[in-house]
Amino acid sequence: MSSKIDYSLPLEYQTEQNRLNILGFWIFLGAEIVLFATLFGVYGVLYQRYAGGPTHQDIIMIKDVLIQTVLLLTSSFTMGIAIFEMRRQQLKGLIFWLVITLLLGAGFLFMEINEFIHYVHLGATMQTSAFLSSLFVLLGTHGAHVTFGIIWAIMVIIQLLRRGLTPTTARKTFIIGLYWHFLDVVWIFIFTFVYLKGMVG
């Protein structure tokens, strides 16, 4: 691997290894799409198998879900601004918008955990029915990804503070950005096919 730096490209694409890493991450996202597609498939098979337990209409708090959606979609937008700041070589702006993104993500996570607690209080647990098993695992997998993303982004922020903007830190920031947007896309599908479809019945 040559460590030649091509200054004509954006910072995160300047070294050969960076280009490999970014392509590798895109392919990893391909695998993630298959993973979530499978979970959606499972949900699609099981979503009406209530087994006498609560149905969608019994448990979904659509107002809270709307707030979650707004938080996460906004965080995707702020992540976009962060990468924009990175392209402008503005380290401070980049970190500021990354922190905002993470706060919005943490807010989303807080709401989601509350939602789960609310479900459990209603007696709707993973053990209740096939519908709820698939619901919890689909939402939980997405939530676990968000949690992982927050921890990961904190690591990247620490490295940005320590090392400033280099091709390596820029690549790491860019990749977490891709990851974050991907989680947003998955959420759009969850919002549509789980919550909206569930409320319509």
């Binding site: 499972v42 098979v45 198998r49 209530y50 087994a51 029915s129 096939a130 098993s133 695992v137």
Partner: peptide, 16 residues
């Protein structure tokens, strides 16, 4: 954890 994806009870589908 006692989920019901593939079980006979609780609405699970073994052929899934």
């Amino acid at each position: 954890y006692g989920a019901h994806f593939f079980t006979l009870s609780g609405g699970g589908l073994d052929m899934l």
